[in-house]
Amino acid sequence: MLEQELKDIWKNSSQEEKISFDLSQLMVELNRKIDRLKKIIHRRDLREIGASIFGIIGFSYLGYEIPFPITKIACVLTIGWFFYVIYKLRKNKKQKITVDISLPFVEQMTNQKANLLRELQLLKSVLYWYVIPPVIFNILFIFGFGNPAEYEWNPWLIKKLTLENSLYLLPIALNVKLLYISGTLLFNVFIIWINKRAVRISLLPLIENADTIISELEDEN
């Protein structure tokens, strides 16, 4: 078979379909897709930061209201941690290489691999910045809970919500504290497992695939 014949077969292969456009409608749809993507990104940003802001407000109130010193310290530490989470997520986003789809193929693949590796690093380090600190602060928070009667504590919000009866649950018995802490630990073990699974199932194969393509391209033969 001649080379030209092969090229003709290739070029004729796309004549099996008739491709047409309605340009004015396409413009509307393209703009709609751009708007939708912007909304998705905006919502994702809000979601990421929203949870931390909600936590900062909540623990600020608790830190102000609760009289037990160790619990107060735990609240301050937790607020600091929430700020750190916002910083960490934003920093990671800034470090991401912007996707330029019109770059040469090898460069595009290399950028893509770098972004995947950054994501891998973030997920691998979850234990140290996302799991251990809040677990420690949580333990402090619960262990710090003392007897409200000793501090003549009568919180405003509980009065407002007429939940005074809930104060009879305090002081929390040691075995209840231990049970709560065990639950927290189990929950966090679950979070670590989910992350490890995400790394194993979704990220590692993608990195391997990107690696293979890059090395195949750069191979001299």
Partner: peptide, 29 residues
Amino acid sequence: LNVCYRSKLKYEKKEEKTISFESIHIVPV
């Protein structure tokens, strides 16, 4: 080529791909 490879690497989020353009018609001859 970049778009095709990105889809192969399944790197794009699924939700970003859900809009299909009705203004593009591809009909088998």
